[in-house]
Simulated scan of single mutants.
Amino acid sequence: MSESTLDHELNSGNYNDETWHVSTWIHRALLATGCTTLLISLAKSLLITSSSGTWILTLSAAILGYILADLATGIYHWAIDNYGSEKTLVFGSQIESFQSHHQQPWSIAKRQLANNLHIPAAWVTAAVLPVNIMSHDPVLLGFVVVFAGGIMFSQLFHAWAHTPKGKLPPLVVALQDMGVIVGRAQHAGHHRPPYNCNYCILSGAWNRFLDKYKFFVGLEMVLHTVLGVKPRSWSGSNADGTRF
C-alpha cells in the first residue's frame, strides 16, 4: 500500500498502519455478494441440467471456463503490471495494489480473505448477476460460474503461492503440486528479473505456452509501435519508478 493510499485510509477511518490487511465489513459484504451470485449461477445451472440431461455439455463448458479464466488472469495481470498508474480511471486502485505487491510480495499472504477478494467479488457480482436473471441456458451458466469464480478466487490462489508450504493445508499443497491451482515455485519466477513471465495466477497452465511463444512481448511491441508506450517490464520498474 502506498503512502498516499495509506493516508487516505487513515483519514477515512477505515484503516491504520497496522490493519491494512484486515477485512472491513464492506469487504465482507462485497465478498458475500459475489459468492452468493456464483452460488445462484451454480444452483440454476445444476437444476436446469438435471432436467434437461445436458451434463456432458455443462461439464465441458465448466472445464473450458476454468481454462479460459486462467488465461484471463494472465492478460489482466500483465496489463495492470505494465501500464497505467494509481490515477488511471476505474483500475487505478488495482494497479497501485499490484505495484505495491511487487515491492513487498509477501504482503499478499497477510491479507485477510475478504480484504484480498472484495474487488474481484464486486466485478463478479456486476457481471454475473444479469446473466443469472436473463439466462436459462445451463451450459452458459456452467461456463459463467466457473469462469467468474476462477477470476474471483485467483487472488486467493495467488496469496497461497506466496505462503510457505508449511503454513498451507495439505489439500492446497496437493492442488498446487497437481497444477490445479498456481504453485509457489512457478509463480516465484514472476518475481525474478526480468519480471515478464508467469502472469497467470489461477492454475498457471497457460504460463509455459504464453512465455515460450512470447505472447506478451508481442503485445508490448504492438502497443509500443502503435501508441509509443513502453511497458514497465522493459525497465523492471514499478509505476513510481522503484525496482520490482
Rank of each mutant, 00 (worst) to 15 (best):
H158S: 09
F215I: 04
T225C: 02
Y66N: 13
A61L: 08
P193F: 05
Q186G: 00
E3H: 02
P169I: 11
T242P: 09
I56V: 10
E220A: 15
H162E: 04
I56G: 01
D177Q: 13
L89K: 09
G92D: 03
Y83P: 14
R232H: 15
H101G: 07
T36E: 00
H27Q: 13
I63G: 08
P105H: 04
L117A: 06
F143V: 06
V139F: 11
Y199P: 11
I26H: 10
D70H: 03
T37K: 02
F147W: 12
H136L: 07
L46A: 15
K167D: 13
W78F: 13
K230A: 14
Y66E: 07
I151R: 13
A62R: 02
A43W: 10
S51N: 03
G204V: 12
L68K: 01
L227V: 06
L6D: 02
V182E: 00
T19H: 03
K87F: 12
G142N: 06
T37N: 11
L31C: 07
H136M: 12
H136K: 07
K214M: 08
A159Y: 01
V139W: 15
M1P: 12
I75N: 04
I56C: 02
A32T: 13
D70K: 05
K212Q: 14
N196R: 12
L59I: 05
D240R: 06
H102R: 03
G150L: 08
G183Y: 01
L89Y: 08
H21W: 14
K110E: 13
A114L: 07
S4N: 13
F244Q: 04
S45G: 07
K214N: 11
S85M: 01
P231Q: 09
Q99W: 12
I108A: 06
A109N: 12
S60N: 11
T37H: 08
V90R: 04
E96N: 08
E96F: 07
P169W: 01
A32L: 12
K87Q: 04
Q103M: 07
C35S: 01
V90W: 10
W20S: 06
V182P: 00
E18S: 07
E18W: 02
G236L: 08
T5E: 06
Q103L: 13
W25V: 01
V173C: 14
V173G: 07
T19P: 14
L202W: 07
C200N: 09
M1R: 02
S12K: 15
L219Q: 07
T225D: 00
N238P: 06
H162P: 08
V226N: 07
Q104N: 06
G166W: 00
F216K: 03
E86G: 03
S45T: 11
H77L: 00
Q186F: 10
V124H: 01
I40P: 03
L171C: 10
D17L: 10
L129P: 08
L168N: 12
A114Y: 08
C197S: 15
R232G: 05
E220R: 09
E96Y: 02
T73H: 01
V124E: 01
W160F: 14
T125Y: 15
D177P: 03
E96A: 15
Q186R: 14
T24L: 10
W123Y: 14
A127W: 13
N115D: 14
Q99S: 06
T33L: 13
V172F: 00
A122C: 04
L202T: 00
P105T: 11
M1V: 14
V180A: 08
L219P: 13
